[in-house]
Simulated scan of single mutants.
Amino acid sequence: MKTSSPLPLAILTTTAEPVAVLSLDLKADANGWQQLLPAGQFRAVDGRPFDVPGNHWFIDAEVANQLIALANDRTNDLVIDYEHQTLKAEENGQPAPAAGWFKTMEWREGSGLWIKPQWTPRATDFIKNGEYKYLSAVFPYDATTGRLLRLHSAALVNRPGIDGMQAVEALAALSLNPKTPNPDSKKTEHSMNELLKKMLVQLGIQVEEGKEPDAAAVLAALSELQTKAGSADTLATEVVALKAGNTLPIVDPAKYVPVEAVHQLHAQIAVLSAEGASTQLDQVIDKAKQEGRLVPAMEAWARDLGKQDLAVLQSFLDKSQPIAALAAMQTDGKKPDADNPDPLATLSADEKKVCLATGISEADFLKTKKGDA
C-alpha cells in the first residue's frame, strides 16, 4: 500500500528582543506582541526552502487567517520551547520545558503574523538578560507553492537557520507524521485512536477518517453527561432519604371523613333544604289566603313563583291589599250581605285591580267572594 510522504516542515527565526533580524523595530508595540513570520515571500538565511520552486515560503492575509482559525480550533495553546527540544525529546530523552505559550495571533498587513506569547518567568529572565535572542517558528508547508499550512510550535534559539537546521527539520517531519515507521509507537497510537473513537461514539460524536474531532462538541457532550450524572445522583439520594425518613405526612382519621360520607351529607342537606323551602312556601301562601291577599284562582301561580323565587312572591303579597271578603271566607265561612242591590258595587278598587291583573271577571270574582263558586 502506497503511503503519502510527510509534509515538509520549516523552522524560521525572528528576534525575541525589541530589534528583529528582519530589521523591524518592535519597541513601538508595548502590549507584549511579537513578530513570528514576515509578510509575503520569505526564506531562511541559509537559502531554504530548497524543495519549493523559487526557494521561498509564502504567507499573506488569507494564509494567516487559515493558520489563526486552525489554532483557534485547538483546545490547547501552542508551545514555545527551548532549542526545539519538543522535537528532539524522543531522540535524546531530555525534558522539553516550555518557555511560553501562545494562541492569540493577528495579521498585520505589510508586517506579517504576530503572536502574543505568555512567557514563563524563567524565559522572561533569559530574554531580559540576552541569553536567548531569537524566536524560531516550526510549520508544515506546501512544497509546490511554499504556502504555510499550519503552525506547529516555536522555540527560543540563538543560532537561527544555520547549523543543524536540516536535521531539526527532519525530526520535525518525523514528529508530525503519524505514519512514521516505528512499530512500537504505531501500535500504541493505533490502539489509542481506536479507544478514543469508541469513547466518542458513546458520547454521540462521529469522526470522519483522517479528521480530528470537534473539541467544542466533545466538551459539550462531556458537560451534558456530567449534568445527567449529577441529576441521577441527586434523585437517588432523595429516594433513599424518603425511604429512610418516611417524610410523607401522617393523616389523623379523627380529623377527616371519607369522601363518600361527604357526598351523602350534601344529598341529605339538599333534600332537607327542599323540604324546608316547600314548608315555608306553604306557610306564606296559607297566611296570604287568611289575610285575603291571595285569591284561590291565583294560588297555583303563586306556588310556581314561590318555588322559583320565594322572596319575589313575598314582596308581591306584602304589597297586595287584603280583601276582607277573602279573609272572611278563609276564617269562618260567612257570606256577605245578600240584600245589596248592586253586587258588583261591593267590589273595592283593589278587588277590581286583582280581577284586572288575574284576568278573572268581576262576576266570577263576586261569586267566589259570595261563596257560590
Rank of each mutant, 00 (worst) to 15 (best):
M1K: 09
K2L: 15
T3P: 00
S4Y: 06
P6I: 02
P8C: 11
A10L: 09
L12F: 14
E17S: 08
P18G: 01
A20N: 15
L22N: 12
K27I: 04
G32N: 06
Q34E: 02
Q34A: 09
Q35G: 04
A39I: 03
A39D: 06
D46M: 03
D46C: 07
R48C: 08
F50P: 05
G54N: 11
N55A: 12
I59S: 00
V63S: 01
A64W: 01
L67Y: 00
A71F: 05
D77C: 07
L78C: 04
V79S: 02
E83N: 14
T86N: 06
T86P: 01
L87M: 10
A89R: 11
A89P: 03
E90I: 15
E91P: 00
T104A: 15
E106C: 06
W107M: 02
W107P: 01
R108T: 04
E109T: 08
Q118H: 08
T124D: 13
D125H: 08
F126K: 03
I127K: 08
N129H: 10
P140R: 00
L148Q: 02
L148S: 06
L149V: 12
R150L: 10
H152D: 06
V157G: 01
R159I: 05
A167K: 15
V168H: 10
A170Q: 14
A170P: 01
A172K: 00
L176Q: 04
P178T: 09
P178Q: 06
N182Y: 09
K187M: 14
S191G: 14
M192R: 15
E194D: 05
E194I: 14
E194A: 06
L196G: 10
K198Y: 12
M199F: 08
Q202Y: 06
L203E: 13
Q206F: 06
V207E: 00
E208K: 14
E209N: 07
K211Y: 10
K211E: 09
K211R: 08
E212L: 15
P213I: 04
D214N: 14
A217Y: 02
A220I: 02
A220T: 05
T227A: 15
G230N: 15
L242C: 05
K243Y: 07
A244S: 12
A244Y: 07
G245W: 12
N246W: 08
N246M: 10
L248P: 00
D252A: 07
K255D: 04
V257W: 00
V257N: 02
V257R: 04
P258W: 00
A261Q: 06
H266Q: 11
A267D: 13
L272A: 15
S273A: 13
Q280K: 12
V284N: 06
I285C: 03
K289M: 09
E291A: 14
G292F: 01
R293H: 03
A297E: 15
A300I: 07
R303N: 07
G306P: 11
Q308H: 11
Q314D: 15
S320A: 13
L326A: 07
L326W: 08
A327D: 05
A328E: 11
T331G: 02
K334W: 00
D339P: 00
P343R: 01
L344V: 08
T346D: 04
D350G: 13
D350N: 10
K353S: 08
V354S: 05
L356T: 14
G359A: 03
T368E: 10
T368V: 07
T368F: 07
G371E: 01
